[in-house]
């Protein structure tokens, strides 16, 4: 069964069970997003994928697609809000792109470029959380965490290990690892885990990789995030048989 809604005036087909974001991406229409990952249950926390449906706003990653919806996304009003959200994420953490090995492969940075975030906008909070370098092959830089919970979901849902969790509330919320010592070396994380592959920023890093990918060959050197997100989008609804 297939039906349609309108996104920025263009008809988008969807299938039952798809969210607005899934249907839009499958149809080749980009809506900026950060905490959404096609392989995981939508989370709705970063709010970058917020769209307007009439006078309401909704996170398109959790909003079920419905027939006849009139949805706005690529309008300056929403993009200005998205820029502010990105600025707040940058201000909350230590996102020093010049010396960050994730630069060029970082979704937050790529979104900043794509949304044309040219200024800081907010006073930086400069968190001072110690690195966890205890594991022989994996490094955690907690100062870059944007609390998207992708690693939490990957470790729990795919790896079945529950290595990561968020602790605390509000402004003190932070990423922790599941070990009595609080150190990554005492967890059962492994390099091949899904949790190692999903961090959109530079928190979970394989050690000794650093800057081995030359400038020009990094993911977002090739094409902007708005184009690459469409490549990653499944063309079938989540859960459907191929």
């Amino acid at each position: 069964m297939s039906d349609t809604f309108h996104l920025d005036g263009v008809e988008v087909k969807f299938e039952h069970g798809q969210t607005v974001l899934q249907a839009a991406l499958a149809a080749g229409k980009y809506i900026p997003h950060l905490c959404y990952h096609p392989e995981f249950k939508p989370h709705g926390s970063c709010k970058l994928c917020t769209v307007k449906i009439g006078s309401r706003t909704a996170a398109s990653c959790t909003m079920p697609a419905e027939t006849g919806l009139e949805i706005e996304s690529g309008i300056e009003e929403l993009n200005a809000l998205r820029r502010t959200l990105v600025q707040m994420l940058f201000a909350e953490g230590n996102h020093f792109c010049p010396s960050c090995e994730k630069s060029g492969n970082c979704m937050l940075q790529a979104l900043g470029y794509d949304l044309e975030v040219h200024t800081a906008g907010f006073r930086h909070q400069y968190p001072d959380r110690p690195l966890d370098a205890s594991h022989p092959d994996i490094l955690l830089d907690f100062n870059r965490c944007i609390l998207c919970e992708l690693c939490v979901r990957a470790s729990g849902e795919v790896d079945g290990k529950n290595v990561f969790a968020l602790s605390g509330r509000g402004a003190t919320k932070h990423l922790i690892v599941n070990a009595a010592s609080g150190q990554l070396k005492d967890t059962d994380i492994a390099l091949g885990d899904k949790a190692m592959q999903v961090c959109p920023v530079g928190v979970i890093l394989k050690k000794r990789i650093g800057f081995s990918i030359p400038i020009g060959e990094r993911r977002y050197d090739q094409r902007p995030i708005s184009a690459q997100a469409l490549d990653d989008a499944p063309r079938k609804p989540a859960g459907a048989k191929p």
Binding site: P98, S99, E101, L131, I209, G210, F211
Partner: peptide, 8 residues
């Protein structure tokens, strides 16, 4: 900081 960050 990790050593491989230093040259950059």
């Amino acid at each position: 900081r990790p050593y491989w960050e230093a040259p950059v």
